Simulated assay, not measured.
Amino acid sequence: MSAARPVLTLADWRPHATPPSDTLIERLERGAVLLFPDLGFALNDEEQALLDPAWVDRGRKNVSLTPLDGHLNGISDPGARRIASQLLERYYRFSLNLLEQLFVAYRGNLHHPTTSLRLHAIANWSERSSWRKDDRRLHIDAFPSRPIHGDRILRVFSNINPDGQPRRWRLGSDFESLCRRYLSDQKGANPLHTWLLAQLKITKRRRSDYDHLMLRLHDRMKADERLQEEPANTVDFPAGSTWICFSDQAAHAVSAGQFMLEQTVLLPVTAMQDPQRSPLAVLERLKGRRLA
């Protein structure tokens, strides 16, 4: 990711506009964040009533939906569950339509969708979290319980704050630099350990060496106080805006904001325009062996 211009702002793009050129995919795959400042996701009156952290089950970070089976987590009230399911299903359709319009090459390859509604103020939630779960600390995304074996983590975010408050991110160094900084001495996963985690259902399947290294990178970044204090690019995502990035590649931290929708999908490396820009390819070059 270019340190000088980590965010590409697309102020004039609208849904159903002429499909963008391949240069947009190129910027995304290089690690840029694509910002659509005027592309909001509107809530109806019934959905607006959900914008209260009190609705979220105690100890839960967010309300989440797996759209393919309709399974909802994080909210118990029956009436609120119905409204939350409706809202998250709408956002899933909005996000998938947006991704398929923007990135024609990815059509048919986006899988394992998860849709989330984040209601807590970032400071209030993070103060109750361990350092590993504190999203105010610079990190790349990796899944502890859901090994992905090199697939990309592609995310769509929308700021739905009703009071006009922006969501503020800090954006860090490019992915390869971070790998060289934190993983030069890191070996692969212990096969017995990964087998045991899968047998005990702590992970949904066995972790690959790729998953192991990505989790180590995530943890080492968050634990490094020097990194957290280094200068970083700061960007405010305004209320009523939407942004997209590969969150397994763009080093980011959330320093302010409340009320956000988030869509996560996985993309196979083979579906990328340039697979050599994937974290998997970068790590395999640095390690000199296959990792997934």
Rank of each mutant, 00 (worst) to 15 (best):
M1P: 15
R5F: 06
A11H: 03
D12C: 02
R14A: 13
P15Y: 02
H16V: 10
H16T: 06
S21V: 05
E26G: 10
E26I: 07
E29W: 04
L34A: 05
P37S: 15
D38Q: 14
D38H: 15
L39Q: 12
A42T: 14
A49P: 09
D57Y: 03
R60A: 12
K61W: 00
V63W: 01
S64Y: 04
S64H: 05
T66L: 10
P67T: 00
P67F: 04
L68V: 07
I75R: 03
S85Q: 14
L88N: 10
Y91H: 15
Q101N: 09
P113Q: 12
T114L: 11
S116K: 05
L117G: 10
L119A: 03
A123S: 14
A123D: 15
S126M: 07
E127H: 08
R128E: 14
W131T: 15
W131M: 10
H149P: 02
D151Y: 11
R155N: 05
V156I: 11
N159M: 04
N161M: 05
N161F: 05
D163K: 12
D163W: 06
D163Q: 13
G164Q: 14
P166M: 06
R167D: 01
L171G: 01
S173N: 13
S173V: 09
S177I: 01
R181P: 01
L183Y: 04
N190V: 02
P191V: 14
L196T: 07
L197Q: 11
A198V: 06
H212V: 04
R216G: 07
L227E: 13
P231Y: 05
A232W: 00
N233G: 01
F237L: 11
S247Q: 00
A251N: 05
A251E: 02
H252G: 10
M260H: 00
L267P: 02
L267Y: 09
L267I: 11
A271F: 06
R277P: 02
P279C: 10
A281I: 02
E284Y: 02
E284C: 09
